[in-house]
Amino acid sequence: MLRFANPSFVLRFAARAIPIFGALAALLLAVGLYLVFFVAPADYQQGETVRIMYIHVPAAWLGMFAYMVMASAALGTLVWRHPVADAAQKSAAPLGAMFTFVCLVTGSLWGKPMWGTYWVWDARLTSMLVLLLIYLALIALWNTIEEPQRAAKAAAVMTLVGLVNIPIIKFSVDWWNTLHQPASVFKTSGPAIYGSMLWPLLIMAVGATFLFLALHLMSIRNEILRRRLDRLTRLAASANDMPRTARFEAAQ
């Protein structure tokens, strides 16, 4: 595990793993989509609209999984202070935001034919919306603080504070939801899932997870390269400045 602290090792690992993860993702998603559209039955209550669930649920899962990855990387930043952990943290935020966004959009598109409106303040959707806000705030934090190391530390602590908060937000939103809406109108528990629907869903979820892993590794690789480029640019700039500094010192 410690080898992952070495950026060169991570680059070599990424070069090998990205094609494998990418291929697995493509294969599983292709099989999953085939099953979703040609094998899985329509739900007796929801009809064909149930096919939206096969992307909605994996997106929700990855929206949360990405946060777990980000929080683990945040621990890496704070405890071991390693640049690869910083890169992993920074890369996970936009990906998590993307999956959370997909979860919200598909949930809303599922809601229109089911509930007759694009958005209801359903407890689970609302919790995901707050999660999206947290992701967006973290991305804004990364973009605002210029020094990468400082940004990494600030984002790491905010990520962990968010991690503690997410279950509390979930609990309070559930409470708020039961308070304001008669539970019978919107059933908060999902529909029962049968085997013929479970397999496609599982395959889609695993495929999407490999997609996330491949994208995350690609993004981490970019961050490592960006860091090197930054470093080289600085070295070149300071090399150019050397004579001037020397002249300045000689003049003193």
Partner: peptide, 17 residues
């Protein structure tokens, strides 16, 4: 403004209760 973005989502539970 950034501080508000960071803090407001975390204030949701306190606001609700």
């Amino acid at each position: 403004l950034l501080m508000a973005l960071l803090v407001l989502p975390l204030c949701v539970p306190a606001l609700i209760f």
